[in-house]
Design a protein around this nucleic acid. Structure first.
Lengths: 344, 344
DNA sequence: GACTATCCTGATAGCGCTAACATTATCAGC
DNA sequence: GCTGATAATGTTAGCGCTATCAGGATAGTC
């Protein structure tokens, strides 16, 4: 963005250029281009023609500064690499589409430090609202959210207290319900397979809920296996092989996400393990991928799309309630037993 | 972003507030917060302390307007729903990380109209550069790119002439090479399975190259099957079943992407089809998912990550060549035969 | 004809920040 | 002490736009 001298014909155009080309004031041009206020049909056309002919693109930076209005919504999520956040994004984009608001995404990679800096960066653009994944933030991030003076929606998780609004599911309960279903189906020697990520609070809460569910039946996890990085499908295979080799008496494997669950399912099928007779399997998320698998993996959908839609509605002020802020929307995932849990 | 009166303590903070709190001029505060110019250690600490205490977040809108510098890079891609663009994004983010530049993503859903409006919106923020997928754009979009006055990098595809810089692979050649490999392996009755998208120019070019490759051996496609929307893995299964039911004599299936290829592979394995003996299979992209499949699908990697890295380097001015613009970087995908093409 | 109402357009004053220059402190060297 | 460099800070003037209000038409009303 170097600035050419004023006489350079390739200097970036301003309202003034359009104004001069169409013979009206800058203010009128501004009105035409924003469809605001009354402008006669004649001038409107004249201005639009001039703008088009010049190839004028308004400068939103200047516009935003002058109007104190920024049509941006910051969306801060940990990752894009599995399909869960992209689906949330779709819900958000779709809902924001006809509001004039535009989502801007920041990725944290599950790092609190990075979340903090991404948030700072976002807020420095003075967005109209922020949608941020999770309820756990660094102290500084928490402070920024509290004093931002704009709508904040914390999404995905509802087990805790949002700064402003919250939309999500109870991961603790999701884990608990899955445990209950597994026990009800008669499984007793249960293994857990998940990621190593200390900062994935939602996976942690699911596991806690799961343990709690098992505890109610007087059961504890028989074995655990963790991974980090790499192709989730492949890791699912490897981990499944490893855990079953180490603990051959396991009769159920609970995966912290569907992708590793799918890998586990493929491995079991190839190795002649009777699923769900000998070993039952379940994942979490309800990803579309599962539809194409030889057998449907048991899972719970995380209401990803709905979360995105509701969050965006709150920011856009589209909530039917008419409430301004401080909404708390809990969604309820349904258990999809698929073909990998014994029918009772 | 409503603006509270000046006496409202919750009004958004400005440089002036920090300046008053720390007893120096706004300019000095600005210098401290941007680490620019000479500021004594004493004042620096005083200012930082005040800024932190107040919870001041600079207003980049004002900063950008004043300095004519925007640390944003527009990235315009068609989709996030398969893993190809997220991986390009990772290459971009990683490369931009230490440059002070920030990517901002826009999604077009393969719609030229939407591409045009997303581009317009992006340019109105006066970014430092634009990375945009593909070489085919609407006339208006093309004009905007030409006159934007910033570095433009068109990515993914190199079969054509970029406006400014280009980074990608030849999809035409990729299709051609795959055809040659298939023919060399002795397959003759070849079917194609792909998406319906008229505006996926890269898929189209691959198919054209593929047809060309077949033609050289005097072969034409024996059958074709197309889909739109839905779970790609599932669609891959369904399409494979459909095409093989209609044309049982096919001995090879070329899929326009790995995901449907994977679905096809699973279907074939379940239905006792000898792969690659009776039917050979190949996809395109080289997605990580394939690593977890029972058998490795033949594919060609699309150099997604590298494309992202090179594109970002061009925008950031990090190219070793020192060239300013108009670079053309062709990458060469390698054929990964996997286990689904007969060894010769 | 004066008056109000409605519609359209223009002049003015910033938005919050930074570039560029101006000014003031500080200190070495003679 | 004075000069002149260097370092540290302040002053001024916008960046390109929009909110706000002030007109100038035109038309209708009494």
């Amino acid at each position: 963005m170097t600035k050419p001298p004023l006489n350079d014909p390739r200097r970036t155009l301003t309202l003034r250029d359009v104004s001069e080309a169409s013979g009206v004031s800058e203010m009128t041009v501004s009105r035409v281009l924003r469809n605001r206020g009354d402008v006669s049909e004649g001038t409107r056309e004249k201005v639009l023609a001039a703008a088009r002919a010049l190839g004028y693109v308004p400068n939103k930076i200047a516009g935003a500064l002058a109007s104190q209005r920024v049509n941006l919504v910051g969306v801060i999520i940990p990752s894009m690499s599995n399909m869960v956040f992209p689906e949330v994004m779709m819900g958000i984009s779709e809902t924001l589409e006809d509001t004039g608001l535009q989502p801007v995404v920041g990725i944290t990679n599950y790092l609190p430090d990075r979340e903090e800096s991404v948030l700072y960066e976002m807020l420095s653009w003075r967005p109209s609202g922020v949608i941020i994944a999770g309820l756990e933030h660094s102290e500084a991030a928490q402070a920024m959210l509290e004093s931002a003076g704009i709508p904040i929606v914390e999404i995905m998780d509802i087990d805790g207290t949002p700064v402003d609004s919250g939309v999500g599911i109870s991961h603790r309960r999701a884990g608990l319900q899955m445990a209950e279903a597994i026990i009800a189906a008669g499984y007793r020697k249960i293994g857990f397979l998940g990621t190593k990520m200390a900062d994935d609070h939602r996976a942690r809460k699911r596991l806690e809920g799961f343990r709690e569910g098992l505890a109610k039946a007087g059961i504890t996890l028989s074995d655990e296996e963790y991974y980090a990085g790499g192709s989730a499908l492949l890791k699912g295979r490897e981990m499944t092989e490893a855990i079953l080799r180490r603990s051959p008496d396991l009769d159920f494997l609970y995966y912290s996400n569907d992708m590793i669950g799918a890998g586990g399912l493929l491995w079991c099928l190839e190795n002649g393990i009777d699923v769900p007779g000998q070993v039952g399997l379940a994942g979490f998320n309800g990803v579309e991928l599962l539809d194409g698998l030889p057998r449907k993996l048991a899972t719970m959908d995380a209401c990803r799309r709905e979360i995105g839609i509701h969050a965006a509605e709150i920011i856009a002020g589209k909530r039917p309630s008419g409430v301004i802020g401080g909404e708390r929307i809990e969604l309820f995932p349904t258990l999809q037993p698929g073909d990998t849990i014994r029918k009772i």
